[in-house]
Design a protein around this nucleic acid. Structure first.
Length: 263
DNA sequence: CTCGGAGCCTGTCTGC
DNA sequence: TGCAGACAGGCTCCGA
């Protein structure tokens, strides 16, 4: 479920609630989560931040609890005294004045204890980091014969883009998602980089995209689904050229694009 | 290295 | 109504 904009939203909302608070205990409810976090009790939360599609809870003493939400993972803050649902609750981090609740319908999510923040970091480059220049993007693309959309999903190149934005970005760039990425011209690579930034930034401003399961750190749905140009809009009219939006399957996953104005 | 497919899970929707 | 199949925001593993 959550991609970079959704996890960024959750991290920004949770940070002021968790940072500086002491961890009382970490409770693992779903035994699919192979997590022993007993050693974290008593230490304070230093920072909450998003890295790629992951949410990291960094402790003062160095270790870091890493939440991979995958398709249906959800993180919510519940202040002391508030009622909370126990259904599909997979883990609970109890702090001084409330609880961080981890829910996950499909149970594909993970919670991993890392030695440090750096150990929790994925291999790829952050797409919104200023260090991602057109030259750097070309370095990352070099040698790949994958189609653009499939390449955008590679977390070892750029980290944080998922299936929704991997359709929205090629549309914003005016590029077909099935173009081999290494065949993009230098001007097309600049367009691609601008589209990556614009699409992710706009989605963050809308607190992410909600179809069914995603909720932000306050338990509220995002609003970016109202602003999606092509994702989930098969057979609808292209908002740019009036063409017909098409769905194709790449690597067993849906891709949406306009065959008229994406070249 | 790349690629395609299966698998991990649960839930919803569609069509017969 | 019942049931099979497709599909869903992700990722890893395997063999070719």
């Amino acid at each position: 479920m959550p991609e970079l904009p959704e996890v960024e939203t959750i991290a920004r909302q949770l940070a002021p609630l968790l940072e500086g608070r002491r961890v009382i205990r970490v409770e693992v409810i779903d035994d699919r989560l192979a997590l022993d976090a007993a050693g974290l009790s008593g230490f304070s939360v230093k920072r909450i931040l998003r890295i790629g599609k992951r949410l990291a809870v960094e402790l003062e003493t160095g270790p870091c609890l890493r939440f991979d939400l995958r398709m249906t993972g959800r993180l919510t803050w519940s202040p002391n005294g508030a009622e909370f649902c126990r259904e599909r609750l997979r883990a609970v981090v109890t702090l001084e004045d409330g609880r961080l609740l981890f829910y996950d319908i499909r149970r594909l999510g993970e919670v991993i204890l890392c030695d440090s923040l750096d150990a929790a970091r994925p291999a790829g480059v952050e797409p919104l980091d200023p260090s991602l220049t057109p030259e750097k993007l070309s370095e990352l693309i070099a040698g790949s014969r994958q189609p653009l959309k499939v390449w955008l999903l590679r977390q070892d190149r750029l980290t944080g883009i998922g299936n929704i934005y991997a359709s929205e970005i090629p549309f914003a760039a005016g590029l077909r998602p099935d173009r081999p990425v290494s065949e993009l011209t230098p001007p097309e690579r600049v367009k691609l980089l601008n589209a990556i930034r614009a699409v992710l930034t706009e989605a963050i401003a809308h607190r992410g995209t909600t179809f069914s399961d995603y909720r932000d750190g306050r338990g509220e749905p995002g609003s970016h689904q109202r602003h999606l140009r092509v994702y989930g809009r098969k057979d609808e009219v292209c908002p740019r050229c009036g063409g017909r939006i098409t769905r194709i399957v790449q690597r067993q996953r849906s891709t949406f694009f306009c065959p008229e104005c994406q070249v």
